[in-house]
Design a protein around this nucleic acid. Structure first.
Length: 643
DNA sequence: CAAACAACCTTTTTT
DNA sequence: AGGTTGTTTG
């Protein structure tokens, strides 16, 4: 590596010794264990800058992050440091990088480059179809796993490279007897995707791995292109991603992985935090660097978070410390019920605002999206502005999916899944007819005359004809994407108005979708991004500059920080989630989740555990504070006792 | 075989 | 409170 003639960045001033060691490491594998708030992002940003300053071409750097947005932010910051453009750096997720390579080398694997990416619900739709057609005739579907369950099990089996049976054992041992049939459905699913030119999330990784494993020339080209690979949030990668990383770096070994085993919270979707433990085995000669100085939180907060995590059963031993000695003790309180919890939060927020804390520096965190419903109502009553992250997504709403399905058949006419979806919207067309028509269209192309499709029924020809005309027109024209989307919208609005009382809101969503397309030149790109990096409503629509209280699931709060964090529902039955109760591994993950939540706080941490909980099944019941909270020495808290 | 209606149940977290 | 799933009707 050649050295630059002069440095505009004073690395040793801006970084602590451990960070500096990571940033200035020579080539070869490096694992950075970065505790919460230890300047992880800063380290990656400076690392990119350092590489570029030392003669590494930006185009030969690959930055793998959890979301593309994270990559963009880091690159923006790094570009400011080096005072130059880093547009040539490839930044994105493992999935989007896989997509990039597969589009380019699709022919090697016998794939068409025009493949569409299925999101999770597309995949569930496909399984639903296969479940009915394969399992339906031979078994009572009432005692057979639902499509979502099958999708989850099959995906897990692929992601963890284990058998269907083992994957069933993990969370659905009561369905092990259905293993054989599920295996059959899994096999059919592969065939179904091939036939329809579809690829799911797992495939993006699996095909990429196959590509790099089986085609040495491709692998050499790829590792020649990206000479340095940086990975963020390594604790949340799965086995396939680790494998992909090995292949990407196989020719040069220049890999820097950054992560924190204590913050691994995605095992439910196949992430395996053993990846971070086994990194040194995967990359012999790994240098391990630990970042243990916390710059985010005050000492009293850190006392609580350290106390949470030191009871964890596995992980790299580490202990965070801070020089920020002062600050109030975290507050723990037990409101009588949910209503009072919500009022307590409102009260806190009002007081903070009176003390001139910007409201956007305050966050309310919770385990699951629906835990904040009551609070949202209370905030609205008090006219407190808020934005919510996590939970249900814009992209998942029916009307958005419907419109996207129209666009997808334009991009990929073989996509029966989308054809079926949009045909079902027509009057007089149900599942059966839709599938039959989808088959015909995918097989022989879009006919000019609807009558060719459906010679017998006269009544609904006009409607089918309109759809066919729309799709054909969109395929042929060269107009801007936004126009095309708008044509679909116009076509779709009548259906919307007929079926939903809240159609004005949904129409607004569709206009928002149209706005999103303005940045795109190609329909393919747009559809890819919608599948790989769906926009979240809040962050795009409601600019984050907006001065609003933040409501967020703990998962969506990862990597962020606030002056004050209020954790609601820190109670048994919420954290840990009941779903995790009977698995020690999952319980451990719940503990880490609580750790992630608490470590987001800079100055104030408030933990609330209502005494009662409303439950649909049981009605009102008494609840204890979360076991992870009860374990913490009480003297670490101020305020009301936990009992 | 589609449409209208009822029941239901779901909802952990998400690339 | 929402959509999904099942049931009945036409």
């Amino acid at each position: 590596m050649k050295s630059a003639s002069f440095h505009s960045i004073d690395y040793s001033r801006d970084l602590n010794p451990a960070q500096l060691e990571a940033v200035t490491a020579a080539g070869g594998p490096v694992l950075v264990i970065a505790g919460a708030g230890s300047g992880k992002t800063r380290t990656i940003v400076y690392r990119v800058a350092w590489l570029v300053e030392h003669g590494v071409a930006p185009s030969s750097i690959l930055l793998l992050t959890f979301t593309r947005k994270a990559a963009e932010e880091m690159l923006t910051r790094a570009a400011l440091l080096v005072q130059g453009s880093l547009a040539q750096v490839t930044g994105g997720t493992f999935h989007s990088t896989g997509n990039l390579l597969l589009r380019r080398y699709a022919n090697r694997l016998g794939l068409q480059t025009s493949f569409s990416i299925m999101d999770q619900s597309d995949s569930i739709d496909a399984f639903d179809h296969l479940r009915k057609s394969i399992a339906g005739p031979v078994t009572d579907l009432k005692s057979f796993p639902r499509a979502r369950t099958i999708a989850e099990v099959v995906s897990r089996s692929k992601g963890t490279q284990t058998s269907i049976r083992d994957s069933l054992e993990y969370r659905y041992p009561h369905f092990v007897h259905a293993g054989e049939l599920i295996e059959k459905i899994g096999a059919e699913y592969e065939e179904y995707k091939r036939l329809n030119n579809l690829i799911d999330y797992d495939d993006l990784l699996l095909h990429t791995i196959r590509l790099l494993e089986e085609y040495e020339d491709v692998r050499r080209d790829v590792s020649a292109r990206w000479q340095h690979v940086l990975v963020d949030e390594y604790q949340d990668t799965n086995r396939l991603q680790a494998r992909m990383l090995v292949l990407l770096a196989s020719d040069h070994g220049n890999v820097m992985a950054v992560g924190d085993d204590s913050q691994s919270i995605y095992a439910f979707r196949g992430a395996d935090f053993r990846n971070i433990m086994e990194f040194p085995d995967l990359f012999p000669g790994t240098r391990i660097i630990k970042l243990e100085e916390n710059y985010r939180s005050t000492a009293p907060i850190l006392a609580v978070t350290n106390s949470i995590i030191e009871r964890a059963s596995v992980g790299y031993p580490k202990r965070l410390y801070t020089r920020r000695a002062g600050g109030p003790l975290p507050l723990a309180a037990r409101p009588m019920d949910e209503r009072r919890q919500s009022r307590f939060v409102v009260q806190c927020v009002k007081e903070l605002v009176e003390h001139d804390i910007p409201i956007r520096e305050v966050a309310v965190l919770f385990r699951a999206g629906y835990h904040s419903f009551d609070l949202e109502a209370e905030l609205a009553r008090n006219s407190i502005p808020f934005v919510k992250y996590g939970g249900f997504k814009f992209i998942e709403s029916v009307h958005i999916k419907d419109v996207l399905a129209h666009l997808r058949v334009v991009a990929n006419p073989a996509d029966r899944l989308s054809w079926t979806r949009i045909l079902k919207l027509l009057p007089g067309v149900g599942v059966k007819t839709a599938m039959k028509l989808a088959d015909r269209i995918a097989g022989t192309g879009i006919p000019n005359d609807a009558a060719e499709l459906f010679p017998r029924s006269g009544k609904h020809h006009q409607e089918i004809q309109k759809l066919l005309d729309l799709v054909r027109r969109l395929k042929q024209t060269d107009e801007p994407l936004a126009n095309k989307v708008d044509q679909v919208n116009q076509y779709y609005y009548p259906h919307l108005m007929e079926n939903y009382d809240n159609y004005p809101k949904r129409m607004k969503d569709l206009e928002h979708l149209t706005d999103l397309t303005v940045r795109y030149r190609s329909l393919y790109r747009f559809l890819n991004d919608m599948a790989l990096e769906p926009p979240d409503e809040e962050r795009t629509g409601n600019d984050r500059r907006s001065n609003s209280l933040v409501l967020s699931t703990i998962h969506s709060a990862k990597g962020l920080e606030w002056h004050t964090v209020i954790l609601i529902w820190a109670a048994e039955g919420r954290i840990p989630s009941p779903m995790a109760m009977d698995s020690p591994d999952e319980l451990e993950e719940e503990r880490r989740l609580l750790y992630v939540a608490a470590t987001r706080a800079k100055h104030n941490l408030v933990i609330l555990a209502p005494r009662t909980m409303m439950d649909r099944a049981r009605g009102i019941s008494q609840v204890r504070p979360s076991r992870f909270i009860e374990e913490i020495p009480q003297e670490y808290f101020r305020g009301l006792a936990l009992d």
